[in-house]
Each structure stands twice: as C-alpha cells, then as structure tokens.
Design a protein around this nucleic acid. Structure first.
Length: 273
DNA sequence: GGGATTGTTTAAAT
DNA sequence: GATTTAAACAATCC
C-alpha cells in the first residue's frame, strides 16, 4: 500500500534517526524476506555505516558505506521503522538492525509480500526492475509528462500504474489524480487532449505533494518511521468510496476494474471514458 | 471459504 | 517486435 508519498515520509523520518550510525548486529527472524542469500546479506551489512536514506519510485533505499545499498520494497503491508526504546519485536517483525545506543530498525510485514536486499552499486544499476523504472512524477515538467503519454493506446489508469512508464504511483493516487483532473480511468491516453494531460500533470503533482505534507495516507496499516499514522486518507475524494456521493456534484461514485485494480470514479465529473 | 487486497512478473493476445 | 491485457503470485483479513 505504501506509494510514493508514504515511502517519501518514511525516508524523511528515518534519515535523522539512522544517519551516521553503523550496523552492529543483525537479527533475521524470517529469512524469506531477504532477496538473495541471507548469509551473504548479513555478511555484507555487518559494520556498515548509514550515509543517507532516500526513495526511488516505491523503493526505500539506505545508502551505506562500502559502498552498499540496502533496498526495501514494502509492497502491501511492509513497515520500516525505529520503535521507541524498549519496544519488543512483534510476530510480524522479520528483520532487526541494531544500530547501537538502543536504536533499532524494525522491518515488519504482516503479509510478507515485501522484501529487502543488499546490493553493490553495480548490482543496483544492473537490476532490471530498477533500471527500467520510469521518471519521478515530481521531477517532470508539463512537457515531459505529456510526451510520456502521447500516442499511447492503453487506458490512462493502466499507464499511471505502470512503474516503467512513471514511477511511484499506486491505486490511491492514480484514482485521486484522475478524479481531480476530471478524466475517466478508462480513457485511452491517445484520446486525451493537451489540456487534459496538462490538468492531469497538475493534479498528480498536487495530490502527491499534499499527501507528503500530510505525512502520507494511513488506509489500512501504513505507519511512518516512528510508527505514527499519516493523515492524508482524510483527504480522499474517491478512493475506496464507491457508492458515496461525489464531493463535487453529489452523484454516486462508481467502481470498475482497470488493469485488474478496482478504480473508483464519478460518472458525472469524469466523462469521456 | 470465496473474494478482495497490493505491486510486480510472466504469459498470452493483439 | 512492440504494445497491451490478463492471469498468477505472495499471505492475510473479512
């Protein structure tokens, strides 16, 4: 569930807590959450110092000396956080990094879809998934944004969710941005006017920035680096609100399947589908 | 116990 | 071959 704003919030919260600290010990309770050989994983990490914490797409990346990259994908229910002192691991805590002075990084994942891996810079750069990621939406000019979708025949919602096309967007922010721009999720990108693409660019940047400001969305069980819930879910206009009235026109919001995902939209405000 | 939930991969279709 | 769509997968909740 964590999308761009949630991972951004986690990275920002984690950075001051872990930067400059070294990994003194590693406790791996669920080896399956580690991609690659778990012994090699532990060998690589031990003693490394955290230099920086950042986000790329939905990936949370800790840059370590060596150099080495500790890469998390949180998928649906993954959490990377620094608990208050004395907090014991839960039954879904799969990995703990001991950073000394009673500072621990917990990696929790109830459904265990998430994963973590330790990669050297060449390994990271040659990783097909990483290399194939599309541009960061917040770094795109209106022109670049338009160029991405120009002439594509797929439905706009599918393209927004495609990490190779544009990175970091999931079901929540795709639905919200399309609603704000007045575009039906089933519209083929090729059928969108220049004005519509510009509106979508604008609404996407707005919704992402507002969500980051609010500390992400806490639908279900997302928590930030301190284990605190975000607030943006209170700003949802359409996501998960099938059957409720549209905040603009009052029509009942509808849901349909696009790219295998439920997609909530207003049949009045989001036409041309 | 079936269906829904997620992002990604892989296979199939166009 | 390129593009697009659908199914499969992981584990759990309701």
């Amino acid at each position: 569930m964590p999308e761009l704003p949630e991972v951004e919030t986690i990275a920002a919260g984690l950075a001051p807590l872990v930067s400059g600290r070294s990994i003194r010990d590693i406790f791996l309770m669920q080896a399956r959450v580690v991609r690659g050989d778990e012994l090699e994983f532990q060998r690589r990490l031990l003693g490394r110092k955290v230099l920086d914490v950042r986000r790329r797409a939905k990936l949370l990346i800790l840059d370590l000396d060596g150099p080495l990259h500790l890469v998390f994908h949180l998928k649906m229910t993954g959490k990377v956080w620094v608990p208050d002192k004395g907090v014991q691991p839960g039954k879904h805590t799969h990995l703990i990094l001991d950073l000394g002075d009673e500072v621990y990084v917990f990696f929790d994942d109830q459904r265990r879809f998430g994963y973590v891996t330790a990669l050297t810079p060449p390994e990271l750069e040659s990783w097909d998934f990483y290399r194939g990621l599309g541009p960061e939406p917040l770094h795109l000019s209106s022109q670049d944004f338009t160029d991405i979708f120009q002439g594509r025949k797929a439905r706009i919602k599918s393209l927004l969710l495609d990490q190779q096309v544009i990175a970091g967007i999931g079901n929540i922010y795709a639905d919200e941005a399309l609603y704000m721009a007045g575009i039906h999720p089933c519209t083929r990108a090729v059928d969108l006017s220049g004005d519509q693409l510009e509106a979508l660019h604008c609404s996407l940047q707005q919704v992402l920035q507002e969500a980051i400001q609010a500390g992400g969305s806490s639908f279900r069980d997302y928590r930030n680096a301190l284990g605190v819930a975000g607030l943006f879910q209170e700003n949802f206009k359409v996501y998960g609100k099938k059957g409720l009235p549209c905040p603009e026109c009052g029509a009942n919001l509808e849901s349909t399947k696009v790219a295998g995902r439920s997609s909530c939209f207003c049949p009045q405000c989001q036409t041309d589908g």
